[in-house]
Design a protein around this nucleic acid. Sequence first.
DNA 1: GCATTATAGATGCATCTGCATATAACTCCG
DNA 2: CGGAGTTATATGCAGATGCATCTATAATGC
Lengths: 128, 128
Amino acid sequence: MRAQRSLVAAMEKDLRVADQPPLGWYDVLWELDRATDGRLRPYEIEERTLLAQYNLSRLIDRLEKEGLVRRETFDQDGRGRWVVITEKGRAVRADMWSVYGRSIQAHIGEKLDKAEAATLAALLLRLR
Amino acid sequence: MRAQRSLVAAMEKDLRVADQPPLGWYDVLWELDRATDGRLRPYEIEERTLLAQYNLSRLIDRLEKEGLVRRETFDQDGRGRWVVITEKGRAVRADMWSVYGRSIQAHIGEKLDKAEAATLAALLLRLR
DNA sequence: GCATTATAGATGCATCTGCATATAACTCCG
DNA sequence: CGGAGTTATATGCAGATGCATCTATAATGC
């Protein structure tokens, strides 16, 4: 918990200093950017990011308001929506990565070697 | 991040279902309970829990309102305060532990053996 | 000894989160 | 088919968080 708290605090700060949006935005944009056709259903994003449903719903609102994603209807199921990343969304994600990637390197890469990082990732994966 | 998110969600839920206060309360009460005379300065709690200063300040407000801690003046430095745990605070911490401890066992203890847990803790410690 | 700077803690305000619940659409079973 | 239950997403409201800043006090430099 403490490690996570300090990493998040440090990385959020790196992003903020570089005038970039908060961390949460990245996860969603990244999932969309790598998805086929740059689109996912909200529940798919939810599964991948482990964001709470109501939380994601409003995060999408914010992304939409900034023009980084748009919602489209999902024809096969009237309850469903598509969330589609826009060109601007892809650009913002790439910008964010230039800061976030360096931040990960600084706060994690510098402190663990590849093998240790792999061990850590494997152990954490077991906790989900 | 995802492991932390899902663990916190699960543990908060365990606490809530058992009618116990949120996780953050525990950390503060625990630090106070084990401290000499059951008292610490806010900045000491901050260092130990890695809570943000403004965040802790208001968490103490809530604990105080519930009668779990009280603030006292700190004579050696007019800027400082003591945060002192009350008997009720100690009791609440103990109650919480009966739920939280089991929750840790269920969500972590069941999934990692002692050696793995030690490895994980050591790696995470390096990230702070 | 006074001005400057630093530290401890609190707080206004905007935003975010969490819970509960709403709404809408789908599925399934008799 | 029709109602009961289920799933996908959204939202009202209360409370928590984050940022910036404030107040009060202490330390430092000249």
